[in-house]
Design a protein around this nucleic acid. Structure first.
Lengths: 331, 331
DNA sequence: ACCAATCCTGAATACGTTTACAATGCAAGC
DNA sequence: GCTTGCATTGTAAACGTATTCAGGATTGGT
């Protein structure tokens, strides 16, 4: 393997000079630089990143922990992260927890071991993890957040967004509204439920607790939970699913029982994933600015890693109700 | 930062012994090990991976280059890769090219710079890249392959799979069959087209060249291309899309023009992504063993990295025709 | 009690960089 | 001519670990 010493010998300079040519070119004379560059080219020299990192204690790498890489919503957030990362010379390492909380603590080791300079969590973190990380490593949370922690966070206001979605159904005249929630472990899921309740309270609507059912954000769970709901005596006329995948599952279930969407049952989702328009009817949903969430999160992380001051540590981005064809006025 | 030296001092041993406790525990006396472990615990010592890697020249990391992380098919392959990687103590670093060929060559630098021990490409590689890589770095190709290269590959037989799909349409009585291809740059896309032609030849079916249109594997391109096809004088009665996303786009287009699937036009896809059943009708398609492809690819890569002999360098896995409701006998 | 063999351990070096510091050369100012 | 200062380069010491080699301790056999 050809190292910096070989280059130095060939260019008849010291290793320091070679290093300088690479990292601070303005400090070396033009003629010297020419010789060095030529030697680098001749020998096809590529600096050993490992050695550099050992010396500088910087990896220029960040790790993103994703609960489910196959969820199109997260893909979009990732794109946003990658975009800012690339622009700033950072590598992005992805870890898919496949919704397995146990694994998460292992990822902190990656920070301890200096495998990465910082980390973005797109998942819930167990509180134990929070304590370890807080004020010790550069970490930011995206989409999710943690009650009472000082870890910088970027997300939408899930409570108000869920309230908005529920309001929409209520204004269309629906009173029997079902809610398919995410796992109760996620703050995000809890918030959406909270928003749902707030809207009900505001409009003096009471719903049978049986209409509130827990899913796990997957298509299958949406399908299964909806089937349960369809077995009730009193059918809901509107369904609010805590994400689009579950909403799509719910629509599938409704149709398979030969009810119509939206004529018999209106359905509203959350996330606005790209597959939300491939079904008939197209899904009415809440759009999250996924790409921008990713941007902002990476932005914050970079500031954190550079020890820059962060003015606020809670960023709330705007969501938006996207009205398509899956909800309709109750007759 | 607490290093191996601090541990050594505290346990009153040399750094060598500490290192041994960590990497080859059986070579050190039990009592000594106890002292060392205690010191490690007391100091909350975590070995610096960077330094270790510099010493061993091993990163225990592999990089997977993905053309489009948001494509559910690739997510599944990734899961397969992750699974085997984790079982063998490897980290997986993901790079999303977003179908941008220019970026790919940059990834080889990651190998040169010893940022990773090996690499799996889920994308086409430009031939320039192949030359650099071949016989020099541990690299395997999954899904795609390269004509005449010796790089180990795992995939299905795209030609025969496409032939099978086309045959299915022909046997259902279709003669006006359209094909929505992938980008011509991908061997995979070409192969599926080849299989399509083979089936036509075998059954003496001739199709108007205008029925063969190029997409780019995205939902939108399927939608757009199908709209073009629907503007023809002579409509196709069957459509074969080179992947499911495009097939879903095509179905959307057909429905939006108020034709029926499959009554008016039958549609068959390729990949069997999880969203292939959320549409009405459920998509008939070719299933690839995505998870297994990932498994096998990582398997091969590990052997490669360990300099083990690889018996074959071309692995063909089985595909399967999944018959659902999007294709029907032509009346 | 002595020797050989075995088991543990420590000193020292290497991995390939970056960088603080020192050294050199040169031009300008006096 | 001498000093000062700047620009450029070199020397050498890190960074934190793994590992070779050799030496010391222990064991077992006689």
């Amino acid at each position: 393997m050809v190292g910096i010493i070989d280059v130095a010998k060939r260019a008849k300079v010291s290793t320091a000079t070679v290093s300088r040519v690479l990292s601070s070119p303005h400090t070396v004379r033009e003629e010297t630089m020419g010789r060095v560059l030529e030697a680098i080219k001749d020998l096809d020299y590529h600096p050993n990143i490992l050695a550099r990192q050992l010396r500088t204690l910087e990896t220029k790498t960040v790790i993103v922990v994703v609960p489910d890489i196959s969820n199109p919503f997260f893909s979009k957030v990732l794109r946003g992260i990658e975009y800012v990362a690339a622009a700033n010379g950072y590598q992005v390492l992805l870890k898919d927890t496949t919704n397995d909380l146990e694994l998460e603590s292992g990822y902190v080791d990656l920070l301890r071991q200096k495998k990465a300079d910082g980390m973005i969590f797109l998942t819930v973190m167990n509180s134990e993890l929070v304590n370890i990380v807080e004020n010790q490593y550069p970490v930011v949370l995206a989409c999710e957040y943690i009650e009472g922690s000082s870890i910088p966070t970027v997300s939408i206001d899930n409570i108000s967004a869920a309230r908005k979605a529920t309001e929409y159904l209520i204004r269309l005249g629906h009173r029997q509204i079902a809610f398919i929630s995410g796992p109760t472990t996620s703050v995000l899921g809890q918030d959406r439920l909270k928003g749902f309740y707030q809207a009900l309270a505001q409009y003096n609507v009471t719903v049978d607790p049986v209409l509130i059912q827990e899913g796990d954000f997957t298509y299958e769970s949406g399908f299964n939970v909806m089937n349960k709901l369809l077995a009730l005596n009193q059918l809901p006329t509107g369904v609010f699913a805590a994400n689009d995948e579950m909403a799509l599952g719910a629509i599938k279930a409704i149709k398979s029982k030969h009810f119509r969407v939206p004529a018999d049952i209106s359905v509203i989702g959350f996330d606005n994933i790209k597959f939300s328009t491939i079904v008939e009817p197209e899904l009415t949903t809440i759009a999250q600015p996924a790409f921008e969430i990713g941007n902002k999160a990476m932005d914050l992380l970079i500031k954190l890693m550079k020890n820059k001051k962060i003015i606020r540590n809670q960023y709330i981005l705007d969501d938006k109700l996207i009205i398509r064809n899956s909800c309709v006025k109750k007759l």
